[in-house]
Amino acid sequence: MMEVVNFVINSLIFPGLLFASLVGLLYVGIDRKVTGHMQHRIGPPIWQEYLDMGKLLSKEDITPGPAQSLVFNTVPLIALGAIVAVMLFLPITSAQPALTSVADLIVIIYMLNIPAICIMLGGYSSGSPFGASGAGRYVVQLLSYEFVFILAIIAVVARVGSLSLGTVVGYQVQQGWLVLDWRLLPAAIAALIAAQGKLLRVPFDIPEAESEIVHGALTEYSGPKLAIWRLAYDIETIVVAGLLAALFFGGPTAYVIGGTQIPGVVDFLVKTLAIVLFTTTLRNIMARLRIDQALKFYWSFAALLAIISLVLVLAVP
């Protein structure tokens, strides 16, 4: 009985839906505010994402005629569910996540791809040329960043010798952050670049380049369904940042400062925020690449970084 209650609390409140959406929306709000200031303007208030979400949820639910299908209507929910599930596998308060399995990194990699696949399905089923071409671009983008992302994770796994995220964090508590390990520094950089692509941020916002293909795969979505997409995207921001924090930046650690116990969740929030702000800076200093350029970049430069790291880890004990 207790386990069931625990599971429900975990998935719905902490660290599941409620916590993840509150923090995710806040982070994207901070991202927008900082972007505004970087562009020398005031920008929206930090809570703008909550307001947007409320507005979208209160709107009428419209499905365009050619898009009437089960796929079109359900993929936003599947994407949201998958991304919230990843949240349960992330170490947030301590090295131990809410759910554990033997090889949870593999589960995370799979689950993180579900929203991407859902976006493609939504785009293809929307019956709009923009949706289809956005989905097509997404396929190419997925092919480019995913390889780098997985290679970077494999480098970490090879170093730590375990596929469990809890073990990776535990390893870092004893041995120091993995990003400070010179063998894994290239992998960390590669993973950050891949995260930029995963989060669809400039220069890799190609699948939803608004001046070329409106809003890509999400063009035909509106109202509550778009709100769910936005929510999934915002949670994905914190999930990817949390994963990177756990892999390379020591994960959540509890500190004692001046006699007060500071819980690990604060550390988690600080680290993820730092990673989000890093991607914010990156997206404000670059122009969007073309899809072929992005593919080339990932498969040459970023993949090279990850491979170097992997070789170093395997060759240099």
Partner: peptide, 16 residues
């Protein structure tokens, strides 16, 4: 032009 190539910072700065 900066907006078309996704360079929103340059867009804002030029219009400033």
């Amino acid at each position: 032009a900066a907006h078309q190539i996704g360079f929103n910072t340059l867009f804002m700065l030029a219009w400033r």
